[in-house]
């Protein structure tokens, strides 16, 4: 890659600039600052769209009474029951049970504390679910394209 070909296509990196290796006019390698590249931006935003899709699905499942609100926070932090169990020090089978609405409804505040601490939200908030996935949290593209 030549120095002048280092792409400068801003995207999802919230203003952070990274460096790319490129060749200058004398054929020497240099480090050139870059704000992003189209190919990367597409791949990255696609990964986030997928998470937003999953969040939509899980919200629908919770509203339909098939899953507990904990499922929403699990998906939001890109975890599966196994990873969530490891983080909270709770057995995986118990985490899976907590994903059931009927079981979740009976959980005390102290049962939910490990989850709340890990995810940095209050216990009350763990019991509620938004109507729509929080798009703004992931999508920084508009701010950065200026």
């Amino acid at each position: 890659m030549k120095k002048e070909d280092v792409p400068q296509q801003g995207g999802l990196n919230a203003g952070a600039r990274e460096v790319s290796y490129a060749v200058d006019s004398n054929g020497r390698y240099i480090l050139e600052s870059s704000v992003g590249w189209e190919a990367k931006n597409i791949a990255l935003s696609q990964a986030w769209e997928e998470i937003v899709d999953q969040l939509r699905d899980v919200i629908a499942a919770i509203k339909a009474g098939k899953k507990s609100p904990l499922a929403y926070y699990m998906v939001k932090s890109q975890m599966d029951p196994a990873l969530l169990a490891q983080y909270c020090g709770i057995a995986r089978w118990r985490v899976k049970r907590h994903l059931k609405p009927a079981v979740f409804a009976k959980l005390s505040d102290s049962d939910l504390t490990p989850y709340a601490e890990l995810l940095g939200v209050s216990v009350e908030r763990l019991r509620t679910v938004p109507d729509e996935p929080p798009l703004t949290e992931f999508d920084h593209s508009e701010k950065e394209n200026s």
Partner: peptide, 8 residues
Amino acid sequence: FPPAYRFH
């Protein structure tokens, strides 16, 4: 880290 890069 920029939020968009925060994966596991």
